[in-house]
Design a protein around this nucleic acid. Structure first.
Lengths: 291, 291
DNA sequence: TAAATTGCCTGACTAAAGTCAGCTATTATG
DNA sequence: CATAATAGCTGACTTTAGTCAGGCAATTTA
């Protein structure tokens, strides 16, 4: 490791602590101690189980309980027993609580946007932040099914097309390629999977089926900031699992020698190179895998 | 601004808060509250004035005083009156305090190196961290004089040469260029200035003098992660101030059209393009400025 | 040189965070 | 079905952080 890499890391930690500490204290100023504000935000972020919130915030059970009581007194949250296990409790925000949560969100958003506006190269800064955030949070990246026509999926596909255009010598035009009909990538014929980090998409893959025994893997893409974590392999494993679930017997895919990482991945995960099986102008390598 | 840029910023803040919060709490576990540990670290980092530490840590005067008393009782610090103003006090670490400080340093270093080791592309991660740290800490970048033969200066010069080699079509070989003798960049003949962010160099510029009325500006370089903050302009202003101080009447410099940012800077800050004044093979533009 | 200011200290206080033992209700287990 | 385990709650407590008024000694200013 470079001799000053630890110094550089620690400079980063210092710079960020100052800024992020301020970000934390911006949760104050609404007449509520930090602990209570953090609970409101955890619930607003979708955490409902008391134990889950406690684990997330690292709180003692007694302290947690007291914070919830004080938020209840304020009329911000309501708790009720868990429907399946009456020992556990679920918390939700009341309307007033929701408003308070949104006020906190506004504070955070405003802070973020001020800091970004100060940056001379906000795009480069964001890419750098993505890389840091994804590296630190790589274990929290989840794979989930999504509608390929949805907004999130379309953003991934746009990024995929843009990258192909950059990397293929001939450029890339979706219309000239065999653009899979979106319905072929929706159950029961196929699927579309997203890799999601903290609510933002960082990768995707499609399974284009016809209802028959052969299906095709399409649109494998990983955000540059999320490369190197084995995410492509995870997506491929997930898409193969769905294919098996849909009783697909043989998977196919086409790819290009302009994408050497993809070629290497297929070759080391059970895919066999076969003869060209379509007349799409872009691919020059074709693979098959029996399930 | 892109619609999801705020979401990306906040994902970064979340990821980093979790990690950095842990970094902070790693200051615990040595039987001492966080406040006291932070004071030990501030002193270990070279802060000696009580008021300075107080300002840095944002502490109330009463609290600060109490923290110092408790550290004195532990035998970690010793305070004495300031030699020039007996109202002020200076603090230093005792031997035991120094040991304790180093123990904290070891904890932080170990943490940094664990996180870096987990990263598949530590170099890219560090560059990203540099960019974030420098953007957040841009107001703390200081310009200071240094010996061009020192380790830090040499690291900057190496980076400068490497960048020239990348950007000049013909490549770059220091030996073929008029490598200024280091002594010509030391007072009283010249100077060498470093831009320093949190102890790490992020830019440099040299003033090569002969003792006569003409001196030359050389080796202007800015770390890619620190570009866009107007640092080059600050360095040039600083080097001009030193030149005036050394009674230089006319400044000269040569540069290359492969460095358009540099050309633009000189053209917008009072430099006048003149005819070639040396036979160095690399430069193709020559400037002069009367002081 | 008297008055104001500065830098740090002390005592008395509050708020917030965190700990711990014991309680109740519910669910799982032999 | 008795017992153990689990989830959350309550009361009593400690620690840490932070605030504020006043005090003292040194220094600056009028």
């Amino acid at each position: 490791m470079m001799p000053d890499s630890i110094a550089r890391f620690r400079r980063f930690a210092r710079a960020v602590t100052a800024e992020i500490g301020a970000l934390d204290s911006s949760f104050l100023g609404r007449g509520r101690p930090l602990g209570a504000a953090r609970v409101v935000n955890a619930i607003g972020a979708g955490r409902a189980d008391v134990a889950e919130i406690r684990a997330y915030l690292g709180l003692d059970s007694g302290l947690m309980s007291r914070l919830l009581r004080s938020l209840e007194e304020e009329g911000l949250v309501a708790t009720e027993p868990h429907p399946e296990d009456a020992r556990r409790r679920v918390v939700r925000l009341t309307d007033a609580g929701q408003r308070e949560f949104l006020a906190y969100e506004d504070i955070s958003d405003a802070r973020a946007s001020t800091l970004l506006a100060r940056s001379p190269r906000a795009d480069a800064l964001l890419r750098a932040m993505d890389l840091v955030a994804l590296t630190l949070g790589r274990d929290r990246i989840a794979i989930e099914e999504a509608d390929p026509r949805g907004e999130t999926a379309r953003a991934c596909l746009e990024a995929y097309y843009a990258e192909l255009a950059r990397r293929l010598e001939s450029g890339f035009d979706v219309k000239r390629s065999r653009d899979p009909e979106a319905r072929a990538m929706v159950r029961p014929r196929g699927t579309f999977l997203l890799a999601v980090a903290d609510g933002l998409p960082v990768g995707c893959v499609g399974l284009k089926g016809s209802g028959g025994p052969i299906a095709e893997v399409k649109r494998l893409w990983i955000d540059p900031a999320a490369r190197g974590f084995g995410l492509a392999r995870r997506l491929m494993q997930a898409v193969e699992a769905v294919a098996r679930d849909l009783s697909v017997a043989v998977l196919r895919l086409d790819t290009s020698s302009a994408l050497p990482e993809a070629l290497a991945l297929y070759r080391t995960s059970g895919w066999v190179e076969v003869a060209r099986f379509n007349d799409d102008p872009y691919p020059d390598h074709f693979f098959e895998k029996a399930l």
